[in-house]
Design a protein around this nucleic acid. Structure first.
Lengths: 204, 204
DNA sequence: CTGATAAACTTAACACTGTTAAGTTAAATT
DNA sequence: AATTTAACTTAACAGTGTTAAGTTTATCAG
């Protein structure tokens, strides 16, 4: 019964079509101006049709975030292969994180600020499989490498990961939510922040 | 004409009454569940009445944020008087910032994430007088002291201020928006972050 | 080819939101 | 007492996410 498979494929294609339109609308108009009704209008269907392909708005936003997370995970694994020095890996990974965040402000907003959080609480985030979670774990592994290689001072990998993570996050969030922030050039501030953090944990 | 002054005082009293009710509703139900209509219901007036005392929702939220900012500025000036060592001042100020942020999650949300930002862009924030701005400037002065006293390595005060600011901000934001975050105890993570940042800029 | 079944999609509504123009009531002034 | 001013409300606009119910369209069995 190839007809059933064909239907499934068509359904999947439509899902992707909606997702693409959603991303466009999202990037074009921004998070605040995005609505299910506007998306429906854009694809030329009634709002209810979207609900046949996505449970609700959150499910749609989740799908969009996973798209972005996939890109990140890809780049992260690439970095891990390209270098041997774990500190170099970490530096590259952190700078990439900054860059991705600043270049995809709207995705970032969804990722972190949609109530009550698309990925749920931190516990739920770590339990439920997702590409975003894999990205986080890959990042933590790099931090572990830095500590295990004795290039970093002795410290709890979990805590250090969180400190790096949280600081970078703060920079991105400020840049996104406060237009014209920071005074200092964003690229320079990003590099300075990453270097400061690494300096704080580097031996001697 | 004392009657006009009395009216003005009554009007001011009502403004405060609305503000108090708003804060209650805000703390009780959280930012997401706060609405002008619910506030109106709480104080027993029609929604439109609020608009006679506050231009719009943003004006009301702004007033609430300034209340919190005033508390912060008070504590900050207290810290500046209590200590002589600028690094100690900075450490205290940073820890206080973390504490205040974590203890007032909903105010913090308004402060930073209401579109397009209650205090406007960073440029507008720095130009227009506000208590929040004064707090930021007081904080920057402490950083300057640290650099001028040669206890810190040579660096641009503006950039360093932003790095501290942004990192602390990230910790608060993550804690607020991701329940159960971080894994590490919040107080410990806060202290570790502050110490890491200071260590990165401390001489030798 | 016809009738039943299942899938796809829409209409119309619900319960909200912030905001405002216009109308009403109560108080103060002339 | 008549008029002006202030305080407050009603009713509406334009929007939001979401869903129950109805309609159209396509697939399947006999």
């Amino acid at each position: 019964m190839g007809i059933r498979e064909k239907r499934n494929r068509q359904k999947e294609e439509f899902r992707v079509k909606i997702l693409n339109a959603a991303r466009e609308l999202f990037i074009e108009k921004g998070y605040e101006a995005f609505s299910m009704r506007k998306l429906a209008h854009k694809i030329g269907f009634s709002p209810t049709t979207i609900y046949l392909y996505f449970k609700d708005k959150d499910a749609l936003l989740f799908a969009m975030c996973e798209e972005l997370a996939e890109q990140c995970l890809l780049e992260l694994t690439k970095i891990r292969k390209q270098h041997i020095d774990p500190v170099k890996k970490l530096r590259k990974a952190l700078l990439f994180h900054v860059k991705t965040g600043l270049e995809n402000p709207d995705h970032y907003k969804v990722l972190f600020f949609v109530h009550p959080g698309i990925y749920g609480s931190q516990t739920e985030f770590m339990q439920r499989p997702s590409i975003a979670r894999d990205t986080h774990l890959a990042f933590k592994d790099i931090v572990k490498e830095c500590i295990d290689s004795k290039l970093f001072i002795k410290a709890d990998p979990e805590t250090v990961t969180e400190i790096f993570y949280v600081s970078i996050h703060g920079l991105i969030v400020m840049s996104i939510f406060k237009s014209n922030y920071p005074w200092t050039d964003r690229e320079i501030l990003g590099k300075t922040l990453v270097d400061s953090l690494i300096r704080a944990y580097l031996k001697q």
